[in-house]
Amino acid sequence: MKVKLSRIFMYIFLSVAAFLSLFPLYWTAVSATNTTPDILAASMTPGSQLIANFTRLLELSSLGRAFWNSARNAVLLTALSVSICSLAGYAFEVYHSKAKDRLMSVLLLSMMIPFAAIMIPLFRLMANMGLVNTTLGFMLPTISTAFLIMLFRQSTRSFPREMIEAARIDGLNEMFIFIRIYIPTMKSTYAAATTITFMAAWNVFLWPRIIMMSPDSVTMPMLISNLMAGYVTEFGVVMLAVLIATLPTILLFLFLQRYFAEGIMGTVK
């Protein structure tokens, strides 16, 4: 009886949590099909304005270009970031020494510095290197993050060392051990790191807003911000843009969610 009661409470709690998580998405989807007055009147039912809102969105913004820019930036940054940080995390743990531990502590300290504090010197650096308005200028500051290195380092702790020893005895060099043994074994950590990095790269707003000034380099979050900048906001159009901007991260998460929890917990199967 006691078990049943706790189960009921658990389901109630989970239902509330699911509702709180899904409602904003539902509201966004419904609002994307409604007019501004309908949205401001808190209409909860789908309307008939989806095509009108989409046409207006194409009129007001360069949707295709923004989507392409966001996708290109996010994919490139995720691929580079996950590759470099996994190498670093692996090296910090496998080629372990006291000096490296100290260096890791310094790296972790960098997580405590807010981005706004380094933004201006960073911008100046990029401007002097001629990287304003370039994808490289956008990516360089965030390719290597202390969080991701830490995630890989922690996960590597549960990676069986015997496999490395066995591979070495079989004559495999260090790079091939990493590529052929480490990467396939740690795919759940890679999935988690990919999801986290892709979401951060897709949603990043402040830095591209500073470094990407050309109209050709506008990204999805910048496009949404531009839609909200005028005296009159067309909320249906904004909601449609938000929905379109949310879809890739939802899809990626659904695709990789099987591995996500394992990866975050640092377990190896």
Binding site: M119, I120, P121, F123, R124, A127, V132, R209, I210, M213, S214, P215, V218, S225, N226, M228, A229
Partner: peptide
């Protein structure tokens, strides 16, 4: 014309002036 929301104009003035990159 570069579509730049007001908050961004405000930020860019501060950033460019502070960073000494007025040529941007």
């Amino acid at each position: 014309i570069i579509e730049t929301p007001w908050e961004q104009v405000d930020e860019q003035i501060t950033t460019f002036a502070t960073a000494g990159t007025l040529d941007l």
